[in-house]
């Protein structure tokens, strides 16, 4: 079957439908596993809650007692800097205690299964687990097996919900709307959990998403998620409101998915010249860590169109909101 036929029509009215927050909506989920399972209302509820948490970070006493006495377990079976520190700080701003687990130097090397590791840590009295794992679906499996709340902080190539939420939050903050906003996500779409969560979330809130990259990294089947595909960055530059540049994952280089870094950078990197052909107020995003000179030149990454550091700041508010929303809900 030709995947081209499955492309959603570009002028579909439902594509630009604006979702507004319902009065009196209440959050009832115990876990945050991905944006796939969330309704547009639930996504908006997280964004709006984060809006209130932003204020806490501007106070001279940057701490509220909302999660006093709760324990947040940060389980990082895979490396992370930003996400881990962001969750850790978010938990401490809400007066929760944190315990940190990284698979390096732990019993994982002795052959303990993920489930056993988590159940043992839960037995110490943990209320919320923040989990990053290289296996897609690991947080979903754990959510069925443990009583504590589970927050997915990135699972394999599946989802990274808090990253997408902070991206969407930043877009809404900068542009004041989401419906009809044209967003390009550029890079290794096939292996990117950030891309998947972003597409899911943005589509639910009515944004128009185009994914861009070489054919080996952008499967055509991804149009089933309701986005457009382009293999040429130059073709779509001028119509985009937001360009989200994903990190090129050096660890995948051996796979022969593209000929050379130089070629990739030439075709899909964003420098001053390409930026000059974009809309004047285009928003340049990157989930970090940046490979300077590969997907973004320093001039663009540090320029006025970039909101990369704002994304990091907003990430804290999003994670405070998510920790707050999932933790007290119990049957």
């Amino acid at each position: 079957m030709s995947s081209k036929r499955r492309k959603p029509p570009r002028r579909d009215v439902r594509l630009h439908e604006e979702v507004t927050a319902e009065e009196g909506f209440v959050w009832t989920r115990k876990d945050l596993l991905g944006l796939d399972e969330l309704s547009p209302q639930e996504i908006l509820h997280i964004l709006d809650t984060a809006e209130s948490f932003k204020e806490v970070s501007t106070r001279s006493i940057k701490k509220v007692p909302a999660l006093r006495g709760k324990v947040v377990g940060l389980l990082f079976f895979e490396d992370s800097t930003r996400t881990r520190m962001s969750f850790e700080l978010a938990a401490s701003r809400m007066s929760a205690d944190t315990i940190l687990f990284t698979s390096k130097g732990s019993s994982v090397s002795k052959g303990e299964t993920t489930l056993d590791t988590v159940k043992n840590i839960e037995a110490m009295g943990v209320d919320v687990f923040v989990i990053r794992h290289s296996q897609s679906g690991a947080p979903h499996l754990l959510a069925k097996q443990v009583g504590a709340s589970i927050i997915n902080a990135g699972d394999g190539a599946h989802e990274h919900p808090t990253q997408a939420l902070l991206d969407i939050f930043t877009i809404r903050q900068r542009l004041g709307r989401l419906a009809g906003v044209k967003v390009a996500i550029v890079g290794d779409i096939a292996h990117s959990r950030v891309a998947r969560s972003n597409i899911l979330g943005l589509r639910k809130l009515g944004a128009d998403v185009t994914v861009v990259g070489p054919p080996t990294l952008v499967p055509n089947a991804i149009t089933a998620m309701g986005c457009r595909v382009s293999h040429s960055l130059d073709d779509i530059l001028d119509e985009m409101d937001v360009i989200n540049m994903l990190r090129i994952q050096f660890e995948r280089f051996g796979g022969g998915l593209f000929p050379s870094l130089r070629e990739y950078s030439k075709l899909y990197g964003l420098g001053a010249q390409r930026l000059s052909r974009c809309k004047k107020d285009v928003l340049i995003m990157h989930p970090g860590p940046i490979n300077r000179g590969v997907e973004l030149t320093s001039e663009v990454a540090d320029g006025p169109n970039s909101c990369i550091l704002q994304q990091v700041t907003n990430g804290l508010a999003i994670r405070m909101a998510v920790l707050y929303l999932v933790s007290p809900v119990r049957e």
Binding site: T49, P65, V329
Partner: peptide
């Protein structure tokens, strides 16, 4: 909301 003493007893969380 962040300072309430009954957070743990609430079933759903309205917008803060």
């Amino acid at each position: 909301t962040f300072y309430r003493d009954d957070l743990a007893q609430r079933r759903g969380i309205p917008l803060v």
